[in-house]
Nucleic acid binder design. Structure first.
Lengths: 218, 218
DNA sequence: ATTATTTTTTAAGTATACTTAAATTTTTTA
DNA sequence: TAAAAAATTTAAGTATACTTAAAAAATAAT
């Protein structure tokens, strides 16, 4: 299946999540930057391939097969975002753009290797769920902010909820990386500060930081 | 420029390295798995784009612009191979197949990030040179086998010249990974053995291993 | 409820990257 | 060196993924 088809199916899936009426050809066309005519055209073709149900003038509905394809692409996109975010010092915007391309040229095997390397994360750095290889999605987010973490426990970094460059620079310097492991050595409750050990470092963070660092219990 | 064009230009570049006569449309066609007619067709199109010089019945010759494009694709291919080889436990065959796809969907920025992460290697795990961002290639290979390394010096692993799964398993378990750093702590010259420290490990290797592990001096 | 606006669809056409079949040119070999 | 074989080119045609323009249907507004 082509890149155009994958993107089409993905657009329907994402729009549908947002609003069922949002999957009419015109909305998909706008999202993909193609003409309405092209979207109608493609919809008919994909209906013939059993990827979606097409009825004139109606919203497009993915079939199970189409949903599975969309989830597979979304999985690869979010795994790439997570992986590149962990590996390289790049802006989230740049990372998104790379993932948008790489998602279509990634075998299931490589996706699995990336997932394995990251410890099979259930959410990407934005907090969006990563479907598993069978297309299953974890809906409830069990991540907690570091400010709510429990003394003595070990966690994996699930999200860094910020766009601030200074914050990311600080994180990079202190091994605070998506998917890294840390242990909460002390919660200074009165002072709203948290002491963590990460790699060979021990760091005390104030509330400004602990509120935007989300972690999963190990 | 499309994937088809990138692959076409790359095929000419690689065939030309091997034999100048090897870049006639038919040979390129065979390499790409397309018909001779398609190759002639494409050759004319690319001549119009100033990527190659086309003369009827003659071998195809890349222009500077075409060579630059080919080198850029080759660079990305080899960087991906190097990167995936380092990061994941995958067969070289699988890695090649992934790189063949990813090479066309990789920005110059991401390529540079990968190169930086690997310490700007000049050769990939097969020993093929990795062009730099300007398309320059290092021709002479300065890597040496571990058996010829000098006591006390620190090296970066440049190649693992083997297809043997057991060897790779052993390497994986002992941090002997492409681009990792090691120090030669002792050469047991009489016994043809080499003691290295890599990460927190100390390993004594016999000649079977030191002859196929190639390193670059740091 | 009728008109105006917007959206969707149909129809016709384009660029890319191929295909097969036949014609032409080159290369090989006897 | 002339005929046979192989390669290249030309020509005609196909599938994909679009485009614009016009027609048809649905939605919104008065």
């Amino acid at each position: 299946m082509s890149i155009a088809i994958e993107n089409f199916v993905k657009a329907i899936y994402k729009n549908d999540k947002h609003d069922t009426q949002d999957t009419k050809p015109g909305n998909i066309a706008k999202k993909l930057g193609i003409s309405n005519a092209a979207a109608t055209d493609m919809a008919k073709k994909l209906a013939a391939k059993d990827l979606l149900n097409y009825e004139k003038y109606q919203a497009l509905k993915l079939t199970d097969k189409g949903t599975k394809m969309a989830l597979n692409v979304v999985r690869k996109h979010r795994l790439w975002e997570a992986f590149l975010f962990k590996m390289f010092d790049m802006s989230l915007h740049d990372i998104h753009r790379e993932a948008e391309l790489l998602e279509h040229q990634t075998s299931d095997l490589l996706a699995e290797k990336i997932s394995e390397y990251l410890g099979h994360p259930k959410f990407d750095p934005h907090g969006d769920p990563i479907p598993n290889a069978d297309g299953e999605i974890t809906t409830e987010d069990t991540s907690i902010s570091l400010s709510d973490a429990i003394e003595g426990k070990t966690y994996t970094i699930a999200r860094l909820m910020s766009d601030d460059k200074e914050f990311f620079d600080f994180c990079a310097q202190n091994q605070i990386k998506y998917r890294n492991t840390l242990t909460v050595s002390k919660q200074f409750i009165a002072n709203k500060m948290t002491q963590i050990s990460i790699g060979s470092n021990t760091i005390v963070l104030n509330e400004d930081f602990t509120k935007i660092i989300y972690v999963d219990e190990n």
